[in-house]
Design a protein around this nucleic acid. Sequence first.
DNA 1: GCAAGATACCCAAACGTTTGGCCCAATCGT
DNA 2: ACGATTGGGCCAAACGTTTGGGTATCTTGC
Lengths: 343, 343
Amino acid sequence: MDPQRPQVTLRMLADRLGLHVSTVSRALHAKPEEGRRAASSATIARIRELADELGYQPNPHATSLRTQRSNLVGVLVPRLSDLVLATVYEGIQEAARAQGLSTFVTNTKDEPDTQRAQTEMMLARRVDGLIFGDARADGALLAETAARGVPFVLVSRHVAGHTSVTCDDPLGGRQAAEHLLGLGHRDFAVIAGEPYASTGIDRTRGFLERCAEDGVTVPPDRIVHSAFDARGGREAADRVLDTSGPQPTALFAVNDFAAIGAMGALRDRGLSPGQDIAVVGFNDTPLAAELPIPLTSIRSPMHEMGRRGLDLLTRLLAGEPAPSERLAPTLVVRASSDRPPRS
Amino acid sequence: MDPQRPQVTLRMLADRLGLHVSTVSRALHAKPEEGRRAASSATIARIRELADELGYQPNPHATSLRTQRSNLVGVLVPRLSDLVLATVYEGIQEAARAQGLSTFVTNTKDEPDTQRAQTEMMLARRVDGLIFGDARADGALLAETAARGVPFVLVSRHVAGHTSVTCDDPLGGRQAAEHLLGLGHRDFAVIAGEPYASTGIDRTRGFLERCAEDGVTVPPDRIVHSAFDARGGREAADRVLDTSGPQPTALFAVNDFAAIGAMGALRDRGLSPGQDIAVVGFNDTPLAAELPIPLTSIRSPMHEMGRRGLDLLTRLLAGEPAPSERLAPTLVVRASSDRPPRS
DNA sequence: GCAAGATACCCAAACGTTTGGCCCAATCGT
DNA sequence: ACGATTGGGCCAAACGTTTGGGTATCTTGC
């Protein structure tokens, strides 16, 4: 099976150099700043040289076993096939690599049972800490996990009482409202995402608050929950548009994919997004700018969120304080909402 | 930091039961079918009970160190934020979990240097095997890796001489051509993807071959390479449409996202996809059906590809034969290509 | 009643590190 | 010249498993 994979060990290096394995170990770890050096600089050089030559790579299992630290972090996301979380994870991974950490990632589909099972699985793998990208406003998993003394942070979504890195979602919602109000819109519909996700909740709340400041209210039947994907957006839009009475002139979806699905639903009714009805999405997915009708969206720093999330976790692991962070979103206006409401 | 995380070990169980640690170990592994039992059934029951009660989880580092097997597989993909590969990875992970394996995944951005570095990183982590989702037709990394005796399989893309699970891409290309030819189209453009990816190469080849069978040829300046995302598709479409002479009546993009970008470019020129020019994509991404103009696409079994890929790898790890597989694509017709060319 | 199997365990080594101590020789201070 | 320091390195234990080999005790066949 493995014709030639004789892994190089410390002992091999030691034997070949006539040194003790502990000396080699110390030499390879010795930071120059250390007071008491592990060996003479000449010996250290010899050791380093041989290690490079033979391509020595420390066995991480042995190291973890000995040090009781795995340098592994577990990441839980609803789905990796959701571009938003995939991008957040890319940020996490990038930051992790910079710190010499590796990451396990797994899908939980936003199902509490799966979340719990995967959390256990991660702990069984002896991760040093966890990053939840799928925190639910309801549910007790986070509290229990915290009670067990497991270090973790949340990204993308937040839950009171736990460290998190999120987009300033209320602000994002406000920006969307401000933009549409500025164009003269007064009749809105909101596709609000899943009811258990703080992202959807906060974006919707911010939107409604800003509307209220201008004396505009959005009737409850114009605010519908939805999955965070295109199909969810289409279905939600269908539900909203099926209600009787005057149609909205603008639609805010808390997620770009939901917005895309909604645009499909609009088209099916002969409404042209951007002409007959304004549409604003959220996240400013790379796709948004390239769509046939480019989508106005609130850009959220997804990648950055991941990086900060991991940085917070390492701070937590080091016993340092790790205050939650909220990253600012920015409005990006495109053709799907660049004109006032019709007549 | 860790208030209460006293990990349960074999020794704890053993001590508490007055048994030897090896007895406990055997008892917990004993498959009923084993001939020589590890202990009396009463003892085994006692052990199992206590293990459950205390929530014993074997330390994977200790196990890996001892058995020289990590039960880890490394997965390399161009980008996880590419929905196609993210979905393939979901399949891999699902199959891995079923086998008690865990997966590391990492982005290589299709850059040879990064691919090499990440391969090393995976091996340093002592993965049992690798799955490449980013194999390049050029380059020597695969050959070198094989020469080192590292077990691996390819998914999504193939390279001669290595085990792989792919979509039958030539067939998919043919299906696209057949569909468009059947509608009466004769003037084609092809957005062919990256030149080093077998997916793009094979899909394009299949398409052209099928055309040739009907005596239709696609001029070289109508076949353009592109990145596998919306922006790449838009740019490629712009290039194709900027060429002088009569415009094509149908466009085949080897990837849904490229197709979406292309539709944007068409719109910018006042061409209506589905009306003025037929568009066919590839992969049948969930988005395709929900777009404002639903996209005809060749459905590829992305999830399944991942599962099979992992299954092949485990077969390889078990020393069994692991022949390459090619999964069948299917055509899904939608509004972007459901009518004959204009006059 | 006794050799031959089973049965039910225990022993100990090994996987590759890390790390607190220890030891020897050379250097230093005075 | 001699005790103290220090530089350079060795020793051994430990992390938690797995596993090839024991060794008593109990059956069993005859």
